[in-house]
Nucleic acid binder design. Structure first.
Length: 426
RNA sequence: GUGGCCAUGGUGAAGCGGUUAACACUUACGACUGUGACUCGUACAUACGAGGGUUCGAUCCCCUCUGGCCACCCCA
């Protein structure tokens, strides 16, 4: 089947990928590690729809963000409602939190989720139109300890994934009280050095001035060297909160660095924001990111409840983890010769599978050689050959594939299982 | 949405305006008719992304389209 030739076959759409058998083990490792770590912190899984009313995302993410303006998969359903494929996870989780009044159950709700997100962007390394996020949301408290707990969790999760390279960077974006002041100061500063800025940044100056601090153009980095820093403009509450977070991080030896130029793309972020950044993924440096969203729940029609969360990009983590192999090899391969042996072999195989062993056989009646060749290819730990002799004597040779050592054992599932799992062979 | 690079079999890849599209791997079968790995043999692209053009002739030249990769914007 050739791609791009509709007459020959249909291919997946741009930016939508298949996860093939030889890579799914890696994803399962990521997901299992996340579940394991999350449960230690008391986060429970929530599963929300992949499609929501468009309005939910407009109101949460922000009408003027790139995500809402040009990246959403939006369509009308048959009833004329405007729906969209979720571009991120927090909005839907918060919607469910409000809709089911989870705030009435506990003062702090800790949720986690994993699943596909959709953004109509041009695909590139580490960026796809359907991508997957694993995230958590802790809703109900402004206490800096909650921030620190989420950050500790993130840091721990990456450790357990075996990734030490991505480094944790944190910042505080302030709140609706102090951010406007800072923004004004920044705009003021930028208008003084307009000529030194790139075209994009001159545009950003009006649309999203904080973004200028994040520009990669050397001229802009130089020009904004003396720009006002958000930390100098935090109101007393935000300042106390941010130093509180750092105090907890220090107390628990969570490694991090301050990045006062870090900006987040979604409108709902307040105060603590953070990213796990890496230099190994080309332009996609953020492997995980998140922050506090103290006004979001109320903004979406819920009670005035603060929250904080983060999400990691599964594809990006998978890229960092690389070619690590997670293949599952069979414990035993059953080769057979002759029709009656096929039945016996099937009986043995089934019995061992019932006992919890991974057992393979060749589905087709092939030569013994090709059956064993398959055993080798599958990297089976042991193999047996069942023929007339074995059936007559009720004994079979159990062969350890790694070194060819053999032992005669009785042709019964229980005995074979004991030999294989016990590892007591020879 | 914008830009750069690219497009040969299941995979990695050579190749030249003109009838064998190299090599390697993978896969299948066999040499070993009751024992895998090593070795050896055989088989596997009417076909070089699609469409059009130039030419006596194009996989190799030109155009369009489609697709891929990477980057910008933005983001996990």
């Amino acid at each position: 089947m050739k791609r791009g030739n509709l007459q020959v076959g249909i291919s997946a759409i741009k930016g939508f990928n298949d996860l093939l058998p030889f890579e799914s083990g890696l994803w399962q490792f990521i997901e299992q590690t996340a579940r394991k770590v999350f449960s230690r912190y008391g986060f429970q899984e929530i599963r929300v729809p992949v499609v929501e009313k468009t309005e939910l995302f407009c109101r949460s993410i922000g009408d003027t963000t790139d995500i809402v303006e040009k990246e959403m998969y939006t369509f009308a359903d048959k009833g004329g409602n405007s729906l969209t494929l979720r571009p991120e996870g927090t909005a839907g989780v918060v919607r469910a939190f409000i809709e089911h009044k989870l705030y009435a159950l506990d003062s702090l709700t800790k949720l986690c989720y994993m699943g596909p997100m959709f953004r109509h962007e041009r695909p590139q390394k580490g960026r796809y139109r359907q991508f997957h996020q694993i995230g958590v949301e802790a809703i109900g408290s402004t206490d800096p300890m909650v921030d620190a707990q989420v950050l500790h969790l993130v840091s721990r999760l990456f450790q357990e994934l075996g990734l030490t390279e991505p480094s944790l960077q944190i910042n505080s974006l302030g709140c609706p009280v102090c951010r406007p002041t800072y923004r004004r100061a920044l705009v003021n500063f930028l208008s003084g050095c307009q000529d030194a800025l790139c075209a994009d940044c001159r545009r950003r100056q009006a649309t999203n001035p904080l973004r200028v601090l994040d520009c990669k153009v050397p001229g802009c980095i130089l020009a904004t060297q003396g720009a006002p820093t958000i930390s100098d403009y935090l109101c007393p509450d935000c300042d106390t909160h941010f130093s509180g977070v750092q105090g907890y991080l220090n107390a628990a030896d969570v490694p991090y660095s301050l990045n006062s130029r870090m900006v987040r793309g979604l409108d709902y972020y307040t105060r603590t924001t953070f990213e796990l950044v890496t230099g190994l993924l080309g332009a996609q440096s953020a492997v995980a990111a998140g922050g506090r969203y103290d006004g979001l729940v109320e903004q979406l029609g819920g009670p005035s409840v603060p929250g904080i969360g983060f999400a990691l990009g599964v594809e990006r983590v998978a890229l960092l983890l690389g070619d690590r192999s997670f293949e599952q090899v069979p414990d035993l391969f059953v080769a057979v010769m002759g029709d009656s042996a096929r039945k016996t072999g099937f009986r043995i195989m089934s019995g061992l599978q019932d006992a919890g062993l991974r057992v393979e056989a060749d589905a087709e009646a092939k030569s013994l050689k090709s059956q064993l060749r398959r055993a080798d290819k599958l990297k089976a730990r042991y193999s047996i050959v069942i023929g007339e002799t074995e059936i007559e004597t009720n004994k079979v040779t159990l062969k350890r594939m790694a070194d060819g050592e053999q032992e005669l054992v009785s042709l019964e599932a229980v005995e074979l299982a004991a030999k294989i799992t016990g590892g007591s062979m020879l």
